[in-house]
Design a protein around this nucleic acid. Structure first.
Length: 892
DNA sequence: CACTCCCGCCAATTA
DNA sequence: TAATTGGCGGGAGTG
């Protein structure tokens, strides 16, 4: 270490070199002059966060031992703190004081300074919470470790936890891809769902251990098999799967992290004590098997808790119980995840330290709306995927096994959890607790589970039915969400899609087109898609495919694209899963089927926000674009899926929501139920900001409907036609319109590709800006036959109109929200297909990297980031991305 | 003393 | 085989 430090330190500059590092700069000092007190002072810097830190440091300094290291370390630290560093000086002196020793001591960071939580904060500071879609920031472990002045091992601790939440994904050997929190809500949602399945019951049933047990058992059985079969799960549930790396052990930090988070999400009180968590997490050991084992588990939980704390998801509290006070953590992150990801977050602002996050998201969206932006995103997106895909083994599918394991584990966990809970309940019941802490809330908690639990309804299909297979149903459900990737991936993935459709024939899958809507004024752009089931299914598969390669074909092709896709989903994706998908698909399809037409509106609303709501699967595609999923595409997908799954019951609501939507998601989202299906169908919208030129224009595309409405005969086209509708605002007339490309190719893949292409096009268009906006929509519908009619019918005609108006309105509102950033340029449109045509563009992705760091996620930052990004990500990018973007889907 | 949790050994995995 | 990952637990810092 020393060496490192020194070398770096010595140079001092090193840190500086990096953009990010501003902070670093200072750190160095101490070392340089060991003697110099001033530098010593630096130490305090580290504290930037807390003023007191300095004092503490000083105190800690007392201890002589560390000097060397400390100093070195400090150097690094400074980086982190760098900013602060300056200020501290004065203090430093004071502190510095006397003896050199002290100095040394001072220099040396106190233990706290070295804490994983602090380290994680530093780490997080380097990356934007909501990176623009595109850029995919790659993280080099070595680089980060050196910059932060810590051993690599520590970085692994952080990254593993972040990875479990999909904030990052592993791309390759020392490389991780930063996704930011775009998908966080989705991920949490998934975890919540998964948690409910596993633990929820416990919670709900409380005492009903039996029930739980047997349930679990059943699930397990089923699941296990499923899991094995399916790698997909991973996608959907990163939780389990996330551990993909798993091989090593179930114990992995990743899995533990997900499970830990699940406990919070399932808990009524949102408070989880370490010991309980440890017990639950210790697989079987309910009773605390080995004490040592327990201890180890707790240690690990502290590690995880530190990272989660840094993320603003939990905070430490103490629960008083019978015995006394026990350390516990309270969930301060978002609690409910309506379908939307981001929004969710917003809800729980408390948690975040990142004030900007929500906004950031919005901004992003907004930005995304802009043609350019989108474009970029897409591009980035694509790029990103690769990363994910790359992840561990891109091609390989090692994951699946892990997943399986995970599943198993989960079941175990559940059981354990149940047990634990009971205990707790018992305990707590009486005690309750106390004070501040929450106690177990056993009482409540047990019962409470509010949310979702019940997921059932909607899920029921999934859940219930699925059971057999599905162990994962839940997961699957989630997965679907991932679908977004589909959209994206769609291109690639399609292969799967076809399958799905085939199987099902149509029903949902069809969904062909999604329409898009544009709204003028707002400048937002919405795409509506209908995606539905198909998509879902597709997506899923796709994802799987992609991931795996199953898509092989694609795989090859899309190099990046594929990868990306996979990544999106990714992670989970293990890809290989394809097989499984079908089942899932079916399920999904089923759901989706129902809803078809209805769906429409609801979710759309979400979109306004920025997020596209998950609701539409199809939209997912859209979403993809929109959201972009940049990174997380997976998340998006998830979201989508979720939405689909969860869709609100009421269509009405949905509608309303649509209206509103921009603002919020309907409360009910979570519930899923079949109804969801409706949603799926619902079209999604993308908003594009017209801003500039466009403002007056609006476009709508309706995916499904569109065809009909539009006149496109989408239906027929099996594949996808994408109709687009433009609606100009009053003024609109002048505006241009949209293009919808329709594709028909049977090839699903194609579709996807096209779709994606379309998406991209949009972007580009926007950039064009001119006034004219254009849209493209594609949708891909996968299934030709079926889809068309069904989905479309009802909605098609009507919807468009309906939507529009509402939409517009909303859009406006939506626009308001974010707007600033984005601007959309008007665009024009184009077709999709061509992948290449498009533009390709751009990818301007740049890695936001560093800069971001200090900035907040705010929109601005994002925008900036984007710009910066241009650099492109990385190596591969450009060409690859391009491919991806465009054709990526299409297999090469 | 209990709670935290840093540190880094060293095994499992990968490349 | 070398490098990367990451489980694990000793034991130190903190309150």
């Amino acid at each position: 270490e020393n060496i490192f430090d020194r070398s770096r330190m010595a140079p001092k500059t090193p840190i500086k070199n990096e953009p990010i590092d501003l902070s670093k700069q200072k750190g160095c000092t101490p070392e340089r002059n060991p003697i110099t007190p001033v530098k010593i002072i630096d130490r305090p810097q580290p504290d930037p966060w807390t003023p007191t830190a300095n004092l503490k440091m000083l105190v800690s300094a007392a201890s002589p031992d560390m000097r060397d290291r400390e100093k070195k370390k400090e150097l690094f630290r400074p980086i982190e703190n760098s900013e602060q560093s300056d200020t501290p000086d004065s203090l430093e002196y004071d502190i510095v004081d006397d003896s050199t020793v002290d100095e040394f001591e001072k220099q040396r960071p106190s233990r706290k300074q070295k804490s994983l939580g602090l380290l994680c904060q530093k780490f997080l500071a380097r990356y934007p919470n909501y990176p623009l879609s595109t850029e995919k920031t790659t993280i080099s472990l070595d680089e980060v470790a050196s910059i932060l002045g810590v051993e690599r091992r520590r970085i692994y601790d952080i990254v593993n936890v972040l990875e479990s939440l999909h904030l990052v994904s592993r791309v390759a050997k020392n490389q991780y891809c930063w996704h930011g929190r775009h998908n966080l809500s989705q991920t949490l949602k998934m975890l919540q769902e998964a948690g409910e399945l596993q633990y929820g019951e416990l919670m709900t049933s409380q005492h009903k251990e039996q029930d739980l047990e047997y349930k679990f058992g059943e699930q397990k059985k089923e699941t296990i098999p499923d899991s094995q079969d399916r790698p997909l799960l991973e996608f959907s549930e990163p939780d389990c799967s996330s551990a993909s790396a798993n091989s090593r052990k179930d114990k992995s930090l990743r899995i533990m992290s997900q499970k830990f988070v699940m406990l919070f999400l399932v808990s009524k009180t949102k408070i989880v004590t370490l010991d309980i968590a440890a017990k639950i997490l210790i697989e079987e050991t309910q009773d605390t098997v080995d004490h040592s084992k327990f201890k180890t588990k707790v240690r690990r939980l502290y590690d995880i808790a530190n990272v989660l704390t840094s993320l603003g998801l939990i905070k430490k509290v103490h629960v008083t119980e019978e015995r006394g006070r026990k350390p516990a953590f309270k969930w301060i992150g978002p609690v409910e995840f309506p379908g939307k990801t981001d929004e969710l977050r917003g809800h729980s602002p408390t948690s975040d330290p990142l004030p900007g996050t929500q906004r950031g998201a919005c901004a992003q969206y907004q930005a995304s709306t802009t043609g350019k932006q989108r474009f970029t995103r897409h591009a980035s997106f694509n790029n990103a995927q690769p990363c994910e895909a790359a992840r561990r083994k891109v091609s390989s599918e090692p994951n699946s096994p892990r997943q399986e394991r995970q599943d198993e584990n989960c079941s175990k966990m559940i059981n354990l959890a149940a047990v634990c809970r009971q205990k707790i309940e018992e305990d707590t019941g009486n005690k309750a607790c106390d004070t501040e802490t929450i106690l177990n809330s056993s009482k409540n908690s047990n019962i409470t589970l509010p949310f979702s639990l019940l997921p059932v309804p909607g899920d029921s299909d999934f859940c219930v039915n699925p059971l057999p297979q599905a162990v994962f149903p839940v997961v699957q459900a989630d997965v679907p969400s991932f679908s977004f990737p589909v959209g994206i991936s769609g291109q690639a993935s399609h292969p799967s899609m076809p399958a799905a459709p085939k199987t099902e024939n149509g029903k949902p899958t069809l969904v062909p087109n999604q329409p898009f809507l544009c709204f003028p004024s707002s400048s937002l752009f919405m795409l509506c898609g209908g995606l539905q089931e198909n998509n879902l299914s597709e997506t899923l598969p796709t994802s799987g495919e992609v991931g795996n390669r199953s898509a092989e074909a694609q795989a090859a092709a899309p190099p990046t694209g594929c990868q990306k896709r996979s990544s999106h989903k990714c992670s989970s994706p293990s890809a290989p899963v394809d097989d499984e998908e079908p089942a899932a698909k079916k399920q999904t399809l089923e759901q989706s089927d129902l809803p078809l037409s209805l769906v429409v509106p609801k979710k759309p609303s979400e979109s306004p926000k920025a997020e596209p709501s998950p609701g539409s699967r199809c939209s997912s595609a859209v979403h993809l674009e929109t959201n972009c999923l940049d990174l997380a595409s997976p998340a998006a997908a998830e979201a989508a899926n979720k939405e689909s799954t969860k869709p609100l019951d009421c269509q009405e609501q949905e509608k309303q929501s649509q209206n509103k939507d921009t603002d919020e998601p309907p409360p009910g989202n979570e519930h899923i139920t079949k109804e969801n299906a409706h949603q799926p169908f619902q079209p999604q919208y993308l908003y594009v900001k017209p801003t500039a030129g466009l403002s007056s224009f609006n476009f709508l595309f309706s995916a499904n409907q569109a065809p009909g409405a539009i006149g496109l005969a989408a239906n027929q086209l099996p594949s996808l036609s994408v109709p687009c509708v433009m609606v100009p605002s009053a003024a609109l007339a002048s505006f241009p319109l949209v293009c919808s490309p329709s594709f028909t190719s049977p090839l699903s893949p194609v579709l996807d590709g096209s779709f994606s292409a379309a998406a991209s096009t949009n972007f580009s268009m926007s950039s064009l800006a001119s006034t004219t906006p254009v849209f493209i929509s594609t949708t891909a519908v996968v299934t030709p036959k079926v889809s068309p009619a069904p989905s479309v019918d009802p909605q098609q005609p009507a919807h468009p109109a309906l939507h529009l108006s509402p939409v517009l309105t909303r859009s406006c509102s939506a626009v308001k929200l974010d707007s600033p950033m984005c601007m959309g340029h008007p665009v024009t449109l184009l077709k999709l297909q061509q992948p290449s045509s498009a533009p390709l563009t751009p990818k301007s992705i740049r890695p936001a990297h560093h800069e971001a760091f200090f900035k907040t996620p705010g929109s601005l930052g994002d925008s900036v980031a984007w710009k910066k990004n241009e650099g492109n990500q990385t190596r591969n990018a450009s060409s690859v991305q391009r491919r991806l973007e465009i054709s990526s889907t299409s297999p090469d």
